[in-house]
Simulated scan of single mutants.
Amino acid sequence: MTEHQDPILRIAAFSDGAVGGNPAGVWTGAVLPPADVMQRLAHQVGFSETAFAAPVDGGWRVRYFSPASEVPFCGHATIALGAALAGAHGDGVYALTLNAAAITVEGRRDAGGLVSAALQSPPTFSRAADPALVQAALALFGYGEADLDPRIAPGFAHAGADHLVLALASRAKLAAMRYDLEAGRALMAAYGLTTIVLAWAETGRLFHTRNPFAIGGVYEDPATGAGTAALAGYLRDIGWPHGGAIDVVQGEDMGMRSRLHADIGALPGSSIRVSGTARFMA
């Protein structure tokens, strides 16, 4: 099928009710287009990611493209896909086959036009961040060691994609985030990062985050499900007192306030459930 026969839906994932959220494109069809066509469509849409899905073996084969490249997993585009599948095929849980993982997404419509959606991330793992990477990232954003939260050491965290986690000591430092896009792209490419998760812990269970996505040609995402899953897995690994779940506010500094919830099971390395609402865009 061609892109003309299958228009791309625009859906804001992890919305704050009927506003905010991170826009994603969602394409569904009988067979996935060639990779170069998906890349071109994602570039034309211009959102940080577009999900492409086709039915296979009782589930859906899914690939994700940013305007600049394919990415292995995207949380907010998965939530948007869950909303699209619920709208087209009914409420339920859908099995998704990614390039290197098998996950699920759930979508359930409500009377107000929103969709409650939840994904189960790929397995998680983490380790201490490379000191050279930490120093390069601090220089990129103009931060110093004193700007970091000493309770959460910098970490390399994975939940379907690789992220650097930097916890900041104040909300003001998070709000002050600035960096050069090309320098950020080079740094992320050198270390194989999908995003850098900048986080501030307001409480043990409430975090404010920002997610530069320079490798995808996007300065910042207003909601990042993959980054939230990676952060949640990392907090579990370091023994953070999360009490089984965290809530994340993201996009506030962009004027696109978004809300994400992550349920954290006790088993190290296990999937993180990331949930929120999605709204269809005009």
Score class of each variant (00 low, 15 high):
A169V: 08
S170N: 11
A172V: 15
A172H: 15
K173C: 12
K173R: 15
L174K: 11
L174T: 07
A175E: 13
M177K: 09
M177A: 13
R178V: 14
R178A: 11
R178K: 07
Y179F: 15
D180Y: 15
L181W: 03
L181G: 02
L181F: 11
E182N: 15
A183V: 03
G184R: 03
G184S: 02
G184D: 00
R185I: 01
R185N: 06
R185F: 02
A186G: 09
L187R: 08
M188D: 00
A189F: 08
Y191V: 09
Y191C: 02
Y191R: 11
Y191F: 15
G192I: 04
L193F: 10
L193A: 07
T194L: 07
T194C: 08
T194P: 09
I196A: 03
I196T: 05
I196H: 07
V197D: 12
V197T: 12
L198H: 08
L198N: 06
L198P: 01
A199V: 15
W200S: 10
W200R: 10
A201E: 10
E202F: 02
E202V: 12
T203W: 05
R205H: 15
F207W: 14
F207V: 05
H208S: 05
T209C: 02
N211R: 07
P212L: 04
F213P: 02
A214K: 00
A214R: 06
A214C: 14
I215L: 14
G216N: 05
G217H: 11
G217K: 08
G217Y: 11
Y219L: 15
E220Y: 09
E220Q: 07
E220L: 04
E220V: 01
D221L: 02
P222C: 03
A223Q: 01
A223C: 05
A223D: 11
T224D: 01
G225F: 07
A226P: 01
G227H: 00
G227L: 09
T228A: 09
T228V: 11
A230K: 09
L231G: 03
A232T: 05
A232C: 08
G233M: 00
G233N: 03
